[in-house]
Design a protein around this nucleic acid. Sequence first.
DNA 1: CATGAATGAGAGTTCATTCAT
DNA 2: GATGAATGAACTCTCATTCAT
Lengths: 194, 194, 194, 194
Amino acid sequence: MGEKSIQKKQHILDTARKVFAEKGFKNVTMKDIVEACEISRGGLYLYFDSTEQIFMEILTMEAQETDDLFTGHISEEDTAADILMLFLKEQKRELLQKKDSLTVAVYEYFFTNGSTDRNNMLRKQFDAGVRVLEKLIEAGIASGEFYCEDPKGAAANIMYVLEGMKVNAKTFGITEKMVDEQLLYIMQGLIVDV
Amino acid sequence: MGEKSIQKKQHILDTARKVFAEKGFKNVTMKDIVEACEISRGGLYLYFDSTEQIFMEILTMEAQETDDLFTGHISEEDTAADILMLFLKEQKRELLQKKDSLTVAVYEYFFTNGSTDRNNMLRKQFDAGVRVLEKLIEAGIASGEFYCEDPKGAAANIMYVLEGMKVNAKTFGITEKMVDEQLLYIMQGLIVDV
Amino acid sequence: MGEKSIQKKQHILDTARKVFAEKGFKNVTMKDIVEACEISRGGLYLYFDSTEQIFMEILTMEAQETDDLFTGHISEEDTAADILMLFLKEQKRELLQKKDSLTVAVYEYFFTNGSTDRNNMLRKQFDAGVRVLEKLIEAGIASGEFYCEDPKGAAANIMYVLEGMKVNAKTFGITEKMVDEQLLYIMQGLIVDV
Amino acid sequence: MGEKSIQKKQHILDTARKVFAEKGFKNVTMKDIVEACEISRGGLYLYFDSTEQIFMEILTMEAQETDDLFTGHISEEDTAADILMLFLKEQKRELLQKKDSLTVAVYEYFFTNGSTDRNNMLRKQFDAGVRVLEKLIEAGIASGEFYCEDPKGAAANIMYVLEGMKVNAKTFGITEKMVDEQLLYIMQGLIVDV
DNA sequence: CATGAATGAGAGTTCATTCAT
DNA sequence: GATGAATGAACTCTCATTCAT
């Protein structure tokens, strides 16, 4: 596959991403993607065999970018509380974002295609989130910022709440106020003397 | 609609419920339901126009039953902690239940058909859950069982966590151990002197 | 399946038979049959799943009719030579028939789908032909009409020749003269004092 | 066309021959040949326009080789019976050969593309076979080896039988025993005092 | 000459929906 | 009311063929 083909493949993935973001996973057909990409019916099949395959490649791309994000914006001087706030703020942004979100598509995909083994991409991301938060909370405890008797439980609690808010956002909508209130509740549970 | 028709309609709803529990919402066709019910293709259309309509009627039935459950098993002598434990136990049971669960179908349905208005059934149930838990926590505080500075936040926290665990259970599986750990974390956050 | 459906199924089989006779097996698509039958695309699938299935049902019908033919026109007074002549005449008629012959379709089908087991329909027909001819030749020997040291070999020889002429007829054509000459050769090899 | 091109064309023909031997004629697509030859899609079209054309060129090659075979292995001292045996043995070998045989492809091709005119390659080969056998039988009669009242009929009989066995072999299988029995029957019909 | 990406026609198949009985 | 045959739209997928490079 030449340079041009790689670009075209990327173009398909980028365009398909928008389609999945708009319509979820189940409602997307190869035809939808063909039309969105403005390529020929057969052309798409040169690169991908199914919506599943396209979607998995998109998710792989996303995962890469997410990893980058996770480790990205943290400066050395930030305190644990700062970092946690940053993290929650980012999650809030994603949560309330209406457009360009793959959330629904991801859920639809994994409802049907998910497995319970360790390689499940969602599980990996969830577990990674818990680990990072646990470390962060422990760091906050060490620095005297946080008080918490069960850092792992607290970390998991945050991740479950985020997941719960995410799915609520997509099924019946969630207001910024509701998110803020819950995030505040979480922070207050951790921070000493607030 | 005669007595016989009502029975037939009920039979369709009961059978369709199994189909939705097994296949989710998006994967179910009118044909699937016709075949499961062993009625004629045209016959189904006498009662329902679409899978959406059938599903909504099933949900309405369920909601009625859920309401009964919520207010059901509580005895006057139970303490707030007892009732909370009971509630969480019931939620845990539903969470880990593999068969006969409409969870996936419900999510799939509301991803596409959900609205953000107040009439959204999921929102109603969520809000009702928060309210009940809030009352319960306040009762526990009054009785000296619980300590909590933000009963509403705590109530919402529990509901979000349950939602998060529910969706995780359906996308990558969740173990009983994970559920127990988080429920314990929640209880310990509330109960005085544990 | 009601009376009407059976008629429709029969109509499809009859029409499809013409299509196979005209185009062979491999060149026939479900679409061809749909168009020949003047039914809807989906309509055909109510009765049949594939051209293979349709073709097999046609062959089963034919086999039934062929069996009837085989045992049909023989009168008690006919001599062995008469019967053999009758049989060869019938075969000749079929051989030279251009229209309405499934020969090509049958060959094409069995080239790909034929198995070597005993249930192969062609094998059954061939073996049955050999058996009948063998009996006939033995009867002719007993009545003094025929002379033959190896009735089974002679019977097989006739069947192979017929098969050979059949395939030649379909690949490069065969003239009536050529058929007559070979049938005469065969008869002369059997008949005493001709 | 340069030396290199001729080699490439030959490579295509050789490879395509294997494909046709394996899959018959109708089941072979230009894509199949491209993939088997490991050349580019466009590359194939530089040399050939269709599977028909490729197949015809393969057949032309084969015909040349067959002619060579026919006149090849005969030594001056062989008797007519020896030569006939040799010929039948060779035919038997081809008959029972499972791999590398174009038989099915040839039949499939000529069912659709065959004409009844004198230039039909199969007819030429058949007629040539009859002529050679006729000469051979006459030579055998002259040498006192054979007895036969109708050499031409006998020759045609042999060719038809071979054709019949060939097609049977491909549609429902034929055993070596069956071939041997029929070839013995044929020889015994010719040879004096056996 | 050679490549292989791209096109688009066409076959297979499934289902929501209708309608005569 | 009830049936189930029939329709036709929509989707999947495959290839012959072309063409810019």
